Simulated assay, not measured.
Amino acid sequence: MSEPIRVLVTGAAGQIAYSLLYSIAKGDVFGKDQPIILLLLDITPMLTVLNGVVMELQDCALPLLREIIPTDQEEVAFKDLDVAILVGSMPRRDGMERKDLLKANVKIFQSQGTALEKFAKKTVKVLVVGNPANTNCLIAAKCAPSIPKENFSCLTRLDHNRARSQVAMRCGVPATQVKNVIIWGNHSSTQYPDVHHCLVNISGSEVPCYDAVKDDAWLQGDFISAV
């Protein structure tokens, strides 16, 4: 069996991280033969909740999970990392737009990018989930100049899945029959879901989205608003 890899999840006491940790720890993400040391970072007021998450993971007695390290210290969380999954961020509140969210999150991702630069392996792979993911990822990458830029990715899967599902429902097919949807921008009112390259599988034939939906006004109006 391989040597354990060190995997960090930030915002680890939150609901999104809670939905990820079990899958990571039991081998769904990195494979059934890859042992894991799981590092869990959250802010100091959340440590009590985080310790509860640790106990739940321990109760699962997962064979691949070699160690769990909960912490509120970046120098501990980012040390010798192989993978960093940056979930934690300031959530959007009522009335907040992207600029408001950026102002709140820039310090978080500057700090975490600096910690990656200082403590993580130079081969670390970084996935930014915290919204606005594209910009947060750019900030983190800028603050870690010695880590290759191709090692940074961001995830806006919610919006991508929502766009696919909207098209699928409109066409009366499963979402698996819809491909090549593109999401431009962050999760905000300025985001643009693009179906110009989208194909829908109708009765075994791949049809351009506009031909499959047959409602340009919907695609250019309510569809964009819904996503």
Rank of each mutant, 00 (worst) to 15 (best):
residue 118 K to T: 14
residue 113 G to R: 08
residue 147 I to D: 04
residue 108 I to D: 11
residue 142 K to S: 09
residue 150 E to V: 09
residue 95 G to C: 04
residue 124 V to I: 10
residue 90 M to P: 09
residue 121 K to R: 10
residue 89 S to T: 05
residue 74 E to R: 15
residue 129 V to T: 11
residue 162 R to H: 09
residue 160 H to N: 06
residue 146 S to M: 11
residue 72 D to H: 08
residue 153 S to I: 05
residue 135 T to W: 11
residue 125 K to N: 04
residue 82 D to G: 08
residue 88 G to P: 08
residue 74 E to Y: 06
residue 104 A to H: 05
residue 165 S to W: 10
residue 110 Q to C: 09
residue 168 A to N: 02
residue 168 A to C: 07
residue 98 R to M: 05
residue 150 E to G: 02
residue 76 V to G: 04
residue 70 P to Y: 01
residue 144 A to L: 03
residue 120 A to P: 08
residue 139 I to S: 03
residue 79 K to L: 11
residue 113 G to T: 00
residue 71 T to I: 04
residue 100 D to E: 13
residue 151 N to W: 11
residue 141 A to D: 04
residue 158 L to T: 06
residue 102 L to S: 01
residue 158 L to K: 15
residue 93 R to V: 14
residue 105 N to W: 00
residue 115 A to Y: 09
residue 153 S to L: 15
residue 129 V to E: 02
residue 81 L to C: 10
residue 116 L to S: 03
residue 146 S to Y: 01
residue 103 K to I: 08
residue 82 D to L: 02
residue 109 F to Q: 03
residue 140 A to Y: 11
residue 122 K to E: 14
residue 134 N to V: 09
residue 121 K to H: 11
residue 75 E to G: 00
residue 91 P to W: 05
residue 160 H to T: 00
residue 117 E to D: 14
residue 169 M to K: 06
residue 158 L to I: 13
residue 135 T to P: 02
residue 113 G to V: 09
residue 153 S to P: 09
residue 74 E to Q: 07
residue 92 R to F: 04
residue 165 S to T: 12
residue 75 E to H: 10
residue 154 C to P: 02
residue 105 N to R: 02
residue 116 L to N: 01
residue 166 Q to N: 14
residue 106 V to I: 12
residue 139 I to D: 02
residue 128 V to H: 08
residue 151 N to F: 15
residue 156 T to D: 11
residue 140 A to H: 05
residue 154 C to T: 05
residue 77 A to P: 13
residue 133 A to N: 07
residue 113 G to F: 10
residue 163 A to R: 01
residue 81 L to K: 01
residue 169 M to S: 13
residue 120 A to C: 07
residue 161 N to H: 14
residue 144 A to D: 07
residue 117 E to C: 12
residue 156 T to I: 09
residue 96 M to C: 10
residue 97 E to Y: 10
residue 150 E to N: 13
residue 124 V to D: 03
residue 153 S to Y: 14
residue 102 L to H: 08
residue 97 E to M: 14
residue 89 S to E: 03
residue 145 P to T: 02
residue 126 V to Q: 02
residue 109 F to P: 01
residue 80 D to N: 15
residue 138 L to N: 06
residue 132 P to S: 04
residue 112 Q to W: 12
residue 120 A to M: 05
residue 90 M to V: 14
residue 93 R to Q: 15
residue 111 S to F: 10
residue 83 V to H: 15
residue 88 G to Q: 12
residue 143 C to Q: 06
residue 83 V to F: 15
residue 135 T to K: 00
residue 84 A to H: 05
residue 159 D to F: 15
residue 148 P to T: 02
residue 121 K to S: 14
residue 166 Q to R: 10
residue 102 L to G: 00
residue 166 Q to D: 12
residue 80 D to T: 01
residue 170 R to F: 06
residue 91 P to Q: 01
residue 135 T to Q: 00
residue 99 K to C: 13
residue 107 K to H: 08
residue 131 N to R: 06
residue 164 R to H: 03
residue 103 K to M: 10
residue 150 E to S: 15
residue 134 N to P: 13
residue 122 K to S: 11
residue 105 N to P: 07
residue 119 F to V: 06
residue 95 G to T: 13
residue 75 E to M: 04
residue 105 N to Q: 02
residue 124 V to T: 08
residue 156 T to Y: 04
residue 94 D to L: 08
residue 136 N to E: 02
residue 113 G to Y: 00
residue 118 K to P: 01
residue 107 K to I: 07
residue 168 A to K: 04
residue 109 F to R: 03
residue 87 V to S: 10
residue 153 S to R: 15
residue 85 I to E: 05
